[in-house]
Amino acid sequence: MKENLYKSIRLTLALLVFLSGVYTIVILGFSKAFAPGGGSIRLLNPSGSNTGGLNIGQAFSENKYFWGRPSAVNYDASASAGSNKGPTNPEYLVVVRKRIDTFLVKNPGINRNDIPSELVTASGSGLDPHISRRAAEIQIPRVAKERNIPEKELQNLVDTNLEGPDLGIFGTERINLLKLNASLDKLPK
């Protein structure tokens, strides 16, 4: 037992250096040299003012922007979390109902059954950067009216921002909301 204790302590020390030290430094060095952004978070317009984390969702509530999904943490990227609401929780269902009503009020002319559920349900991370094509398209009339742009132009913008499924198989067809909204701001007035 005592002999084992001694061996265990020495082996633990050696492995701390080997695993937590050497392995970490190797991956760190590799990232610095080869990863996009040298291992830090990828940003939209890294040097410009109009910035944001490319993969980090942002809260959008103004009419002139496309809106993303509800977030349990209000897009706080230092406290990620989902709502953890169960599918039959009555309070939760009331919240969803309210979100639908609000959406209908702010987007007149939309049919209730055109709203895809991801626009009224919170994501797992609270930072979901994406929405589906359908979720973007039903917002086109509102954004077009607010910005005084023809709807067709916005439809083009939505189409050019479509990505996925990756390699034709992996994941869903989706739109990065930050990219889409940033390109809105770049449109000539």
């Binding site: 989902g82 994406h130 359908r134 996925g164």
Partner: peptide, 15 residues
């Protein structure tokens, strides 16, 4: 009365 083209999306990521 809304659509669920993807499915149950509470707690899930679009991607």
């Amino acid at each position: 009365g809304i659509a669920q083209p993807l499915g149950n999306m509470e707690g899930k990521e679009v991607r």
